[in-house]
Design a protein around this nucleic acid. Structure first.
Length: 466
RNA sequence: GCCGCUAUCGUCUAACGGUUUAGGACGUUGCCUUCUCAAGGCAAAGAUUAGGGGUUCGAAUCCCCUUAGCGGCACCA
């Protein structure tokens, strides 16, 4: 049974786009193998905990359609799925490790540790715990709660092999590994302890996570071996990069997944784009559905160079998705988007009428407003000064007024007639008319827009300028 | 600094050691279409496959070195 998980920690505003990528791969792998996808909240860092972050992460995941089969709210057979609710478990296992001789108690103070580290750095050594307490054989009964930590007793002079699905066997020298703290003095586990215990207990078959974890995997291997547990399959995914190739960060790119939603990116488009990070469709297709992705995707085809996240290509892809969607579908997406993100209730019928005009123009749902604002309210500012156009506008007014059928076609014919009569340049003429009606130099097709606005509204707008 | 991972157009990538004058997509430029902006169509530019050594009849593909980039080296995850 394939079981995968993502393990976000609620220490940021929201789900990081890199985590969304990891989530997508985990989710797709599970869907492909008819397994279970779990979300476990790693809230063991009490200092950095951000209020509300957990809810936001879960909501964002849902908004993107990557819903877990088991999570802290849904529960499941191996709950609880929030690490802060599993403290006792970690503590028991930590003490057990000490008893078995794979870990030890350490009472070094923060001050001492800092001093040791400072000295090491000064001597250009690798900053690392000096193993002061390693052979002291401290007994639990001698220790006061809150005054000690449990450290991993890393063996000396041994090779630790991490078998990574994408990289093959990666060898680490145990002498380069620190005696990692497993249980902190506040009784909370560190990531390393908790992740191993939970992945084992939750029967995770594939640990699919970002490459930044590769170097700490030897510690995890040591723990699996100490407990005598079977190891999961490890698969370390590439880390998404900024355009300058550094690790994707919020200083250089919007990194919160929900930001993309708030701009009016469609979830499927974002996911499609993310799927193309480090992977390509066997037929070199760029646009494909999630179902198709699941169908043809294979973990081992991911290649491990950290790809640069390209917002420009994402934008193109979003445009493709918008153009491909059914008008009725797009209508509800626009309605929902403006309601949720801009607190605007747009009239359904008007949105419906305008969609064909802007469908090929907008790249994000937010763009709808830039194009279509003028349908909803009369322009107040005009991008071109129309003061000396009054005589022309008057003639336009008269022409339009005579029209019995106010359709795009008739409007077009009437306007061309006028152009001919007055011997005008069409380009210039239509720009002036466009600005008069919409206030802008750029708009959806003018005749169609005027038809939608209706005769009286158009006349009103022109009259205002005469 | 130490450990580890990686290296194909600006970017995402394709190419089971030989069908390769290294293919596609985004972006860029030009043309067509056109009342604007788009969308669409057609072109073009863009990579001595990081550099250097091997192995091989043959290397983008396998091996080694160098260089560069990235990641990790917390009582953070």
């Amino acid at each position: 049974m394939v079981r995968t998980r993502i393990a976000p920690s609620p220490t940021g505003e929201d789900l990081h786009i890199g985590n969304l990528y990891t989530a997508l791969i985990n989710w797709a792998w599970v869907r492909k193998n008819k397994g279970k996808f779990v979300v476990r909240i790693e809230d063991t860092d009490r200092q950095r905990l951000v209020k509300g972050a957990e809810e936001r992460i879960l909501k964002t995941l849902k908004d993107f359609g990557l819903e877990p089969d088991e999570d802290p709210n849904k529960g499941g057979p191996f709950g609880p799925y929030r690490q802060s609710e599993r403290l006792r478990l970690y503590q028991e296992y930590a003490h057990q490790l000490v008893e078995k001789g794979f870990a030890y108690y350490c009472t070094c103070s923060k001050e001492r540790l800092d001093e040791v580290r400072k000295k090491q750095i000064a001597q250009k050594q690798i900053p690392r715990y000096d193993r002061h307490c390693r052979n002291l054989n401290l007994k639990k009964s001698d220790l006061k709660t809150g005054q000690y930590v449990v450290r991993l007793k890393v063996p000396v002079n041994s090779k630790i092999i991490v078998d990574d699905l994408l990289r093959g066997k990666v060898e680490f020298d145990s002498n380069n590994i620190d005696d990692q703290v497993l249980l902190k003095s506040d009784g909370y586990p560190t990531y390393h302890l908790a992740v191993v215990i939970d992945d084992y207990l939750m029967k995770i078959s594939h640990v699919i996570r970002a490459e930044e974890w590769l170097s700490s995997t030897p510690k995890h291997i040591l723990l699996y071996e100490a407990f005598g547990w079977e190891k999961p399959i490890f698969c370390h995914l590439p880390i998404l990069r900024n355009p300058d190739r550094s690790k994707l960060s919020k200083r250089k790119n919007p990194v919160w997944a929900s930001w993309y939603l708030s701009q009016g990116y469609l979830p499927e488009a974002v996911l499609n784009y993310l799927a193309l990070m480090g992977w390509s469709h066997p037929q070199e297709k760029e646009i494909f559905s999630l179902d198709e992705f699941i169908e043809v995707f294979d973990l081992k085809d991911i290649h491990i160079v950290g790809p640069a996240f390209d917002p420009v290509k994402l934008e193109w892809m979003n445009g493709e998705y918008i153009r491909q969607s059914q008008n009725s579908n797009l209508k509800s997406q626009i309605l929902n988007y403006f309601k949720e993100h801009h607190n605007k209730d747009l009239p359904e019928d008007l949105v419906e009428k305008t969609i064909p005009l802007i469908k090929e123009r907008i790249k994000q749902l937010a763009d709808y407003w830039d194009y279509c604002q003028f349908f909803y309210k009369r322009p107040e500012n005009y991008e071109v000064d129309l003061k000396d156009k009054k005589p022309l506008l008057k003639k336009i007014y008269e022409k339009l007024e005579k029209l019995e059928e106010f359709t795009a076609k008739k409007i077009g014919e009437a306007m061309m007639e006028l152009v001919k009569e007055e011997n005008l340049k069409t380009g210039r003429f239509f720009q002036d008319l466009r600005v008069a009606i919409t206030g802008k130099k750029i708009s959806p097709p003018l005749n169609e827009s005027m038809e939608i606005l209706g005769k009286s509204e158009c006349l009103e707008r022109i009259k205002k300028l005469i």
